[in-house]
């Protein structure tokens, strides 16, 4: 009975990431045990290797079918092989990294090492960001929109994104649009679009545009700063 449920969940988890997430939470002890078996010592969730094992377990969920035999054996095999891949990559990367080399955004790596005096600032900033995100999640929830919805419906085409940027500029230019949005909990489409083509595109990405407009309202300075590239520009 339990096995049949597991098979069902496994099938569902292929397309529903939250079912996969639930399965992984359930099998985290297995994932950690497999990692520990490979490492030869205890592995905690914060270890890189556990992340790799977890991703391998997800890969196993996605790729598994009954002709691959027992799922746990398959997952165990995949975890092991991904950990080996990781080790090989590590050996190659470890070879030579200098602190004077460029890190992300061309900053020398040495600049990215945390200064202890910055720690308090960093913590404060983290807390502030968390608060903004929590607030944004709450407001979006009022509109019936979740972060997951936004990730499911994120525009991918550049043309769409350009159109959305125009709409954002219009909303920035006329703050009453945002007021109307917050009041009615509806996207004031008529005031945002110029023609039928735009209307169609924006309607299709209603949730995403709504999310962007909410971020434009007061109280999301950190997130707005992060999205500076998207939100900049003049109204057109």
């Amino acid at each position: 009975m339990e096995e049949r449920q597991f098979t069902k969940d496994l099938k569902k988890a292929k397309t529903d990431i939250d079912v996969a997430d639930e399965l992984i939470r359930k099998y985290m002890p297995f994932i950690k045990a497999e990692t520990a078996k490979y490492l030869g010592h205890y592995a905690s969730e914060s270890d890189d290797e556990v992340s790799i094992a977890m991703i391998a377990f997800h890969e196993a969920i996605l790729n598994y079918d009954s002709d691959k035999g027992n799922f746990m054996h398959y997952a165990s095999m995949l975890i092991r092989s991904r950990l080996i891949d990781h080790d090989r990559k590590e050996v190659r990367h470890k070879a030579n990294i200098s602190l004077d080399e460029d890190g992300d955004d061309n900053d020398p790596l040495i600049n990215t090492i945390a200064d202890p005096s910055d720690k308090v600032d960093t913590n404060m900033r983290l807390e502030a960001t968390k608060e903004e995100i929590a607030e944004l999640a709450k407001v979006l929830n009022d509109f019936g929109v979740s972060f997951k919805d936004l990730s499911d419906h994120s525009p991918k085409q550049e043309r769409t994104m350009d159109m959305i940027k125009k709409v954002i500029q219009r909303a920035k230019a006329d703050t009453t649009i945002l007021d109307e949005l917050l009041e009615t909990k509806k996207l004031p489409l008529k005031r945002l679009v110029n023609d039928g083509g735009e209307r169609k595109t924006i309607e299709r990405h209603r949730k995403y545009v709504l999310g962007m407009l909410v971020i434009l309202t007061n109280g999301y300075e950190i997130i707005r700063g992060h999205l500076w590239h998207v939100l900049k520009g003049e109204a057109v």
């Binding site: 990431i17 997430d21 992984i24 972060f147 936004l150 995403y208 999310g211 999205l227 500076w228 998207v230």
Partner: peptide, 16 residues
């Protein structure tokens, strides 16, 4: 989440 996170990229896209 346990398996994944939702992140907001600088270019405005939301990703898992």
């Amino acid at each position: 989440h346990t398996l994944y996170c939702i992140v907001l990229a600088e270019d405005g896209s939301y990703l898992k």
